[in-house]
Computed example of a mutant assay.
Amino acid sequence: MYQFTYAEIVDDAASDARGRERRAVKRGVELLEQAQVAGIRSRETVEALHYLRSLWSILIEDLAQPENDLPEALRADLISIGIWVLREVEQIRLERCDDLQNLIDINTMISEGLK
């Protein structure tokens, strides 16, 4: 029979959560890359922007919770990035910007940071 310490279980849970977050952000990058190929006014772009808006809204909400175990400064930085992503998504949606590369780059960096 296996016996685990509480710390081992908590570490595994945090690692699992990071893995899920990484996969979610990576999926956003994949959708953005497909949208870039399809064109700024494509269905793929609409889907990518909707996905990113939903994802980052959830992440920001989680980061803002006092129960979040990340250091406060890191949480604040990630919330700032999330707000930037949401603003950039809105600029593209309103056709004030037609470049997805910045969103791809930022989300790729976040995904890599979650490894």
Rank of each mutant, 00 (worst) to 15 (best):
Q3M: 14
F4W: 10
F4D: 12
F4G: 04
T5Y: 11
T5G: 13
Y6D: 14
A7E: 15
A7C: 03
A7K: 14
E8G: 04
I9S: 08
I9K: 07
I9W: 02
I9P: 05
V10K: 07
D11G: 12
A13S: 10
R18L: 13
R18G: 00
R18K: 13
G19M: 03
E21K: 03
V25A: 01
K26V: 10
K26Q: 15
R27W: 09
R27E: 15
V29D: 02
V29W: 03
E30S: 07
E30F: 00
E30K: 00
L31R: 05
L31N: 03
L32Y: 04
E33D: 08
E33C: 00
Q34C: 03
A35G: 04
V37Q: 13
A38C: 03
G39Q: 12
G39V: 13
G39A: 11
G39D: 11
G39F: 11
I40W: 02
I40L: 03
R41W: 02
R43H: 15
V46D: 14
A48V: 01
A48Q: 07
A48R: 06
L49M: 01
H50P: 00
H50G: 14
Y51D: 00
Y51H: 03
R53A: 15
S54P: 03
S54T: 14
S54E: 14
L55F: 05
L55P: 08
W56D: 02
W56L: 04
L59I: 07
I60K: 13
D62M: 06
A64Q: 09
P66M: 11
N68R: 04
D69N: 10
E72C: 00
E72S: 13
L74C: 05
L74P: 02
R75L: 04
A76M: 12
A76T: 14
D77Y: 01
L78T: 12
L78G: 09
I79L: 05
I79P: 03
G82H: 06
I83K: 00
I83T: 13
V85D: 08
L86F: 02
E88R: 13
E88H: 09
V89A: 04
V89Q: 01
Q91M: 09
Q91P: 06
Q91Y: 08
I92N: 00
I92D: 08
R93W: 09
R93Q: 12
E95M: 08
E95H: 09
E95A: 10
R96A: 11
R96V: 09
R96S: 09
C97W: 03
C97T: 13
D98C: 02
D99Y: 06
D99M: 01
L100S: 04
N102I: 07
N102C: 02
I104E: 06
D105Q: 00
I106H: 02
M109L: 13
M109Q: 14
M109C: 10
I110W: 06
S111V: 03
L114Y: 00
K115N: 02
